[in-house]
Design a protein around this nucleic acid. Structure first.
Lengths: 349, 349
DNA sequence: GTTAGCACTCTCATTACGTGAGTGCTAAAA
DNA sequence: TTTTAGCACTCACGTAATGAGAGTGCTAAC
């Protein structure tokens, strides 16, 4: 009667790696025999079995039922990605192909995001996601007011990165388009190049300063500006390839699949998860039950941040079943994030 | 040995109606017994069976297998919606609720569309779709050029209905923002209130006229204008509630469901289908195999056009399994289209 | 420490069989 | 002529029995 070993020997690690790779490839519980045979261990199945029993006791492997092989637990995947995985870097050809698809996109930032999403989902055969930059944090290039009806004004905001946002603002007084143009000019001079959040602070300060209100136009402009910039913007996510995961045997059951799709539809929760990744330095990996949200516990996320120059803008990556091909997907996400950063940095300059 | 009757008697119609309604409610083949019992016919099952045999021979009913009840064919549904259906109008309470949700949306057109989509999917428990207005056909309120980088210009287009569209245009010469503003002013004066398609014609004509090109600025402006308005815009669709149809027993099979979802993802095909509906006068109904596209033949569409004043803008409605509750959904779509039209008409005035 | 051997467990595919719902046909009743 | 009762027949579906196969854990020998 032997207890579990205090720590993993090299053999433990080899066996665990083999089992996880086999399971990722086949989606079936893997038995001692096939580990011994396929992975060139010069050991008998019985020995492997002992090792597997240790790994199970330590919580890295589980058994669907007594007479089946082992499957990795989320803890097993975690140790795998942290220290066992052999990353399969992209081939030169793949990299070239990806680069080509990006230089094709000359247009606006939205197109770039969409393209990245498609690329991620296509190459990973899973779900691609991109958390778009928050407008709050982007530098403003231009603001414009267009009168829509007597008391409603369309506010258009252009960022230096080329994103366009618009919203409707209701006013309690009628301002002719002529005046609106003047106000826009005033504000443009004031805010160009600043981030939305800084603009908000500035406006508050200015309004306090101008208490005397010599200039009626300026007063109105500041007021309108404040209304226009008021709301915190919600993060926007691009998502693509949701149908890909229908192939995965783990979602063969319709009820499970429905749960996943409902989760994808609730973008606000997804944004919260992605925001967490944004806080991390570098690549983040969330595996199954590491996620707080119930609906997401059968899924894993591989996310990487992207930048414009030095400025952190958002995060992008892949969502798939916990049994996803980390070897391939981690380099893919990494490379894509780098390319997107490069494109955005070029546009800004 | 009797052949099928030349035309349907009142009894045939009653039985067919009963069968279809029962099948829509239960999703199970319906037998002669239950028709006779549940629907208050004062006839024996045997008599009903004779009627059912007639209806089957005429192609309105089918049998999944010899010893099962009957289910409606697409032809059966067609005659049902054309002449057998009893529409269940919305209750006053429901109408009130819907109206409330719409007056809540004061903002821009996109919000209105999104809200309508959600409403349709929520109340129908199926998939809601809205085909957004083509920019081509809308009157332009304003055009604006923003310099993005040396040779790239962001073109922003505002329609009178309050939609904002933007695209990136590449130039072969550098034009300072100052000049861009002047050009925008020139063009605005020229095109305000016209539809995009008319603007295109106008620009071609003007360019021919101005062959002499006295005015260099005007020449450049026309050229930039032409580039900005060049492309035909693709129809945009809003879609919501796709997860709803996962409940339906006809899609219990994962492979079938996957096919449907892939179809939903291919919006360009969907746009084509919706464009057809746009050509129709009033409400259009496409039932199962009436649709040309293979992937859509298990689904039905109930669509209605919406307007701003007199002008036809787009179409909206519900997609569901052929076995959908037409009695309820037809009035729902009808009412929603009317409300959306009202909202849009108000905004434009 | 490693391995062969073996009894044991559990899933999964196959087969067989009974049940029930529903049909089509025929002949009698209305 | 129309309607109905009666009956044999068909077919899907659920249940149970069976056997093969994969894999395990344990023991004892190497």
């Amino acid at each position: 009667m032997r207890g579990a070993p205090a720590e993993l020997t090299e053999r433990h690690r080899d066996v665990l790696r083999a089992i996880i790779q086999d399971y990722i490839a086949s989606a079936e519980p893997v038995g001692s025999r096939s580990v011994a045979r396929k992975y060139g261990f010069r050991l008998s199945p019985a020995t492997i079995r002992n090792v597997m029993a240790d790994l199970a006791e330590l919580g890295y492997l589980a058994q669907p039922h007594t007479s089946a092989g082992r499957i990795p637990t989320d803890r097993g995947y975690r140790i795998y990605v942290d220290s066992l995985m052999d990353r399969h870097p992209l081939t030169r050809a793949q990299e070239g192909m990806i680069e080509k698809r990006f230089c094709h996109v000359q247009g606006e930032v939205g197109d770039l995001m969409r393209e990245a999403t498609k690329l991620l989902s296509g190459l990973s055969r899973s779900v691609g996601v991109v958390l778009a930059p928050r407008v709050d944090q982007l530098a403003i290039r231009r603001i414009e007011f267009v009168q829509q009806s007597a008391e409603r004004i369309l506010v258009i905001l252009v960022t230096t990165s080329g994103q366009v946002h618009h919203k409707m603002v209701a006013l309690d007084e009628v301002i002719p388009q002529e005046e609106l143009n003047k106000m826009a000019r005033l504000l443009n001079a004031m805010v160009e190049g600043m981030s939305l959040s800084r603009v908000r602070q500035l406006l508050v300060k200015k309004m306090a300063e101008e208490k005397a209100m010599y200039d009626e136009l300026l007063r109105q402009a500041l007021k309108l500006g404040q209304k226009s910039f008021a709301e915190e913007t919600e993060g926007e996510v691009y998502i693509d390839g949701t149908t890909n995961i229908m192939h995965e045997p783990e979602f063969a059951d319709v009820e499970k699949m429905r749960a996943i799709f409902v989760a994808f539809e609730e973008t606000s929760k997804l944004v919260k998860i992605l925001d967490q990744c944004l806080g991390q330095q570098g690549l983040s990996l969330i595996i199954g039950s590491e996620n707080v949200l119930r609906e997401w516990q059968r899924l894993s996320l591989v996310m990487a941040p992207y930048y414009s120059g030095e400025q952190l803008l958002g995060t992008l990556g892949v969502i798939g079943p916990t049994r996803m091909d980390y070897d391939k997907i981690v380099p893919l996400v990494d490379f894509t994030a780098r390319l997107v950063s490069r494109s955005l940095t070029e546009v800004a300059s």
